[in-house]
């Protein structure tokens, strides 16, 4: 990866950042070992994961969902994997265990 990045002579000196607001370009999601996966069927749309996420990586989307019992939700919760660091707070706080932390990479044998 590092060979694709600019060299010392191409970088602004002293690590100075000349473009404000560029933290969005810094994808912190690649720190993750475990990723949260939301089971839309179990999810009761309580919004607790959205509230607790320290990285604002849970996103509320206007996406309708009807579960097997016929209950219709107007919104859904998704994970922004670009910024989710995999801390697992959402899974811990979810009152209905709708979020599972699964390994980011399969174990290689």
């Amino acid at each position: 990866m590092s060979s694709e990045l600019p060299g010392a002579s191409e970088l602004v000196i002293g690590g100075i950042i000349t473009k404000p607001g560029n933290s969005l370009e810094y994808k912190t999601g690649d720190w993750r070992v475990l990723k949260p996966v939301i089971d839309q069927e179990k999810c009761v749309r309580c919004r607790l994961c959205w509230i607790y996420c320290p990285d604002a990586a849970i996103i509320e989307v206007e996406e309708e969902y009807t579960n097997k019992k016929g209950r219709k939700y107007k919104i859904s919760y998704k994970v922004n994997y670009d910024y989710c660091k995999g801390c697992g707070i959402c899974a811990e706080e979810c009152p209905v265990n709708a979020i599972e932390m699964v390994p980011e990479y399969e174990k290689k044998r």
């Binding site: 990045l5 010392a8 970088l11 000196i13 002293g14 950042i17």
Partner: peptide
């Protein structure tokens, strides 16, 4: 690259292992 409200910059940020070495090498040069 001085601190100037009209032309904002960030000085002294964190540099992860992909960036730190090059910034120190600039000092060598």
């Amino acid at each position: 690259y001085r601190l100037d409200p009209d032309k904002p910059v960030t000085m002294g940020p964190i540099a992860d292992p992909n960036w730190f070495y090059e910034i120190k090498y600039q000092q060598v040069i």
